[in-house]
Design a binder for these strands. Sequence first.
RNA 1: GUCCCCUUCGUCUAAAGGUUAGGACACCACUCUUUCAAGGUGGAGAUACGGGUUCAAUUCCCGUAGGGGACGCCA
Length: 504
Amino acid sequence: MAWFRPASRSASSVPPCVRLCYTLARPAQRLNRQESPMTVVTRFAPSPTGYLHIGGARTALFNWLFSRHHQGRFLLRIEDTDRERSTEDAVRAIIEGLRWLGLDWDGEPVFQFARASRHADVARDLLAKGRAYHCYCTPEELAEMRERARAEGRSPKYDGRWRDRDPKEAPPGAKPVIRFKAPQSGETVVEDLVQGRVAVANAELDDMVLLRADGTPTYMLSVVVDDHDMAITHAIRGDDHLTNAFRQTQLFLACGWQPPRYAHIPLIHGADGAKLSKRHGAVALGDYAHLGLLSEAMRNYLLRLGWSHGDDEIIPTAKAIEWFNLESIGRSPARFDMEKLLSLNAHYIREAAGDVLRPPVAALIEKSLARALTTEEGIQLDRLLPALKPRARTLIELANGAAFLFRPRPLPLDAGATKQLGPDGKAALRAFAERLSTCSDWSAATLEQATRAEAEAKGLKLGAIAQPLRAALTGSSVSPPIFDVMAALGREATLGRITDVTRT
RNA sequence: GUCCCCUUCGUCUAAAGGUUAGGACACCACUCUUUCAAGGUGGAGAUACGGGUUCAAUUCCCGUAGGGGACGCCA
């Protein structure tokens, strides 16, 4: 098909009327036309029909990293052309998810449906140029067509019955759709930046619907027009769009436009190797934020799922921007591994400064306490945070680990703690309390010194005092180093908690 | 069913013709130690299978098997 080949691969071959007539979702939004053709422009184009899931988040991350690496632009386009299923809640979830992940987009988000009339214009233009046609098939007729094809072992495609038929034969009153007149011979090639050269015989593809009977554009039309109008240079998206890329390429060429470079990244699978779905547990990005993950850890994990830089595992965002490239994206699907995500999160918690961790942890504690922390309690938390960090994989674990600090006296004791506070334990504590009350310097080092001196004086192993002490101070047999606990608690709270258990 | 893609330790991956096939998570042991972690040291663990090409295949080609994706007036 001669017309199927682009006359020119440059965007300037687009007729001026086409270039000028697009409409914008927001008047303030500048489409990228006037910028240098070398500027990288990527986009994340989710449909607001549900939460932002982990796979979409990675797609967004890759697009963001690629544009930031090239000092280009990263645009957000909400593909809300499915009026039935698009919701404002989903739009909000997507935006909140991206914000949490730290992926900032340039300009205002583009709402695709707001551009519907522009899309329809392109469809009618194609119709006028003979590259699209009216199809009067009913949905029932199409379903039957597919069923028969499947039964006969053929591909369930539209058979093109209205492609060359005279519209005069149209059933009276029927509202037609506009279908693309796709090339029927030859092949369509996508030079994919991840998958390499992928080709399909045009005979395999059918004539897709561009404009629905109600005059609204379909996804296939909208992406092409928007990717063109937004001057997208690189479309990085899930592997599930690979076959769409053939159709979209055909459409681009029919419009006389240059398609963006495509990069189809493999999907993320669940631990069982199947497509990630709700039955795999948390798949919404928001779920992970609520689990107490740091977004830096999430970015690092998502990046390593399918992309690599030698043996590097710990890749902070700044490094990721510096190193990111499309060549190092793998071609095979990856399974989601919560354990590894958690271990990465533990790493970033350990590395995080106290004042980064304190606000979210304090918020978590205040929520479970149903009250605000006092100034004194805030100081106690700050003092214990360094000792808590290596013991937590999530912010929630961090908050749980600190919870004993704020429990009202007398502390409830768990089974292990009760065991430590037998007659011997209590006796050791009673004696130790006397020495402790004479301690003037309440630092961990001094307290350790005092405790060791006490053990030596009584001929006891350190544990014989430390364990009952831990039980009395934390209500548990497991805690951060006990001298850190004493120092964090402070003199008054420490002596008080000891008295609580030695009184009886 | 048709088309497209994929296949290195359990998992994520490195090695872009010549390596004792490397790292990370998880696992095991030891170590440190006041408990639990963290840390340190060590261990076990992989090129799906079958054919080619080559002096030499994880690497290139073909086939088989397995997995995934697409095939809507959804996106």
